[in-house]
Amino acid sequence: MVLIKHDNLYIILNLLMYTISLCCFIIGLAQHKKHKELSHLYIYALASFIQNTVGEMLIKRKIFGFYVTTKFGISAMHVFLLIEFVCIYYFFFKTKIISDLAKKMLVLLFACFLCFYIRETLTPNFFKQVGNFYFLDSCFILIPCFVYLIQLFAKPPTLNLLNEPSFWFNSGILIFFTLTLPVFFMINYFRSKPMLAAIDIINFIGYSIIFLFLIRAYLCRPKTAI
């Protein structure tokens, strides 16, 4: 009985995430010129939509059971991770809230992640699992999120946060990656108990939130120069 409920939940949340990411892509494409720092993020929504479609087609699932994954499916996840990382870091490089000094630190982090990514592509594990990668990706993305918040409060509070696109997207990122960080930290525990579909459910919720926040960010009124 519980299983059926979870099965339904999986499908509903998956569909919800599809719809939101597609809406986000469409709104982002229409609004991307209005906000400089968000101009590229519709690509992120599109990449998420494609990756999930490709993932659903190429990764054969057994709900609440073990994955039977193909190398291509894992590679698609890795490519998406890289696109996600680049898109989010590019957003932080473009936002005016973060100081130039902090941006230099972000360049260093970005380079470190890329080095790690390249090194991982050479290992045989690269085509077998993505868990460790997700964890590292989350850690590296959460750092600029907190830097953003610290610098937001360090500067004179002249912004109207309710109409600040970078704040909304940063909040979406913060929620998603904080939510999934402990899950990916314990990925091996979840692997030992066939609960990977439950992790997917959390992922769906997280991505739905991130894209909802991104839609909210796109819908902020553009600032007019005085």
Binding site: V2, L3, L179, P194
Partner: peptide
């Protein structure tokens, strides 16, 4: 397993 999943959902 189900209780683990429910716990995970509650914690999340």
């Amino acid at each position: 397993q189900n209780s683990d999943i429910i716990l995970l959902i509650i914690v999340t």
